Amino acid sequence: MSLNHGDSLRSDATVTPEVETVSSLLAHPLLQDPKFVAAAGGLVVLLIFLSLFRSGKKTARRNGPATVLLVGPSDGGKTSLFAKLVQDIYPQTHTSIVPSITTFTLPSPYDDGQSKQIRLVDLPGHPRLRDEVKKYVNEASAVVFVVDIQGIVRNASGVAEQLPPVLTALTNLSLRLPPSAPQPKLLLLAHKTDLLVRPSPPTTQSPPEIPSTTLVTSTDRLKSLLTREMDRLKSARGGSGGKIEGMGKVAGSTSGSWFSRLFGGGSSGGVSVSEGEGEGEEDEALVWGGKGAFRWEDVEGIDIEWAASGLGAVRGEKEKGDVEEGNGLDEVRRFLWEL
């Protein structure tokens, strides 16, 4: 009897939860207010539109020919390289003050009769014009950082200080791309390698034939010097609270929410920043990696490659009877072809 009585008590104590029907939810006073319904519907439509707009914006740069930026210090040979690739001439040039942009046909470097279109952008290396890269990086499939391999020995620190803004821009670009899109590429190019040929530089071809040992030596020299200087910059960054003078701001610990990413904005300490500035500041850490020495493998979101090139003697358009070209641009052309 006591057992049955206990069961009866437990049965009586059981509470059945009340479940509101859909009709009762729809009868909520707020949902009966036309202004509230209109505002909520408008917000949903706006969020959907912005999501689609930003998704379309992410993939827009991949349409058409691949865009390649030529960047780097002044007098590195960017404009001469631009002229040689586009017009097959090597003229005497001077320091550029405005960007040069064109689309040209690149023959296959494998002599198979094929060709492809490349959109090439030559950006000035003057210190006051270096921010031009920010205007074009969102369209870029690759960046070629052109360095005078002779001049870098005297100014390695100055050359290296131009790299972090380029690396940061590319890591930011990589973060904005859809997961299925290829990562942007960076080619660190040891240019004017023909001037290192001994006993004397070649002068009969443009581009010239450069010994493979000289090409390898130039690439190794560039990598060694830039690695050393980037490690120095990383140490300076760690010793100054994460900021290197002249390289832009570095964000604090604030991370963007889903809404801030959707609307393309962000905040740090309550101050609004633009999309380019906010993302650039947040993501500079992706360039430097963790603790320890700087390593190129730690730079996230970028495929980094190394190459060497040379143009030989200054000359105009080809004339009948000109000798066959050498290998001075082979590595550059292969890089462009693989984009």
Results as ranks from 00 to 15, higher is better:
8 S>A: 14
10 R>M: 05
10 R>I: 10
12 D>N: 10
29 P>R: 12
34 P>C: 12
38 A>H: 13
40 A>L: 13
42 G>Q: 13
46 L>P: 02
50 L>G: 01
59 T>G: 09
72 G>M: 03
76 G>P: 07
80 S>F: 01
82 F>T: 00
89 I>K: 09
89 I>F: 03
91 P>E: 07
97 I>R: 15
106 L>H: 05
106 L>V: 05
107 P>Q: 09
109 P>Q: 03
110 Y>L: 11
128 R>G: 02
134 K>I: 06
134 K>A: 08
138 N>F: 15
146 V>I: 12
155 N>I: 07
158 G>Q: 08
160 A>W: 02
171 T>M: 01
175 L>Y: 14
178 P>I: 04
178 P>M: 10
179 P>K: 13
180 S>I: 04
183 Q>T: 06
183 Q>K: 10
185 K>N: 09
188 L>M: 15
189 L>I: 12
190 A>H: 05
191 H>S: 05
195 L>D: 05
199 P>C: 10
201 P>Q: 03
203 T>I: 10
208 P>T: 10
211 P>R: 08
214 T>P: 02
218 S>F: 03
224 S>A: 11
230 M>Y: 04
232 R>K: 12
241 G>F: 01
250 V>Q: 00
252 G>R: 09
256 G>A: 08
258 W>A: 15
258 W>I: 04
260 S>M: 12
263 F>R: 07
264 G>M: 01
273 V>C: 06
277 E>A: 10
278 G>A: 07
281 E>L: 11
290 G>N: 11
293 A>R: 12
294 F>L: 11
295 R>D: 05
303 D>C: 11
304 I>E: 05
308 A>F: 08
322 D>G: 01
323 V>I: 05
324 E>R: 14
325 E>V: 15
329 L>W: 02
334 R>Y: 04
339 L>V: 06
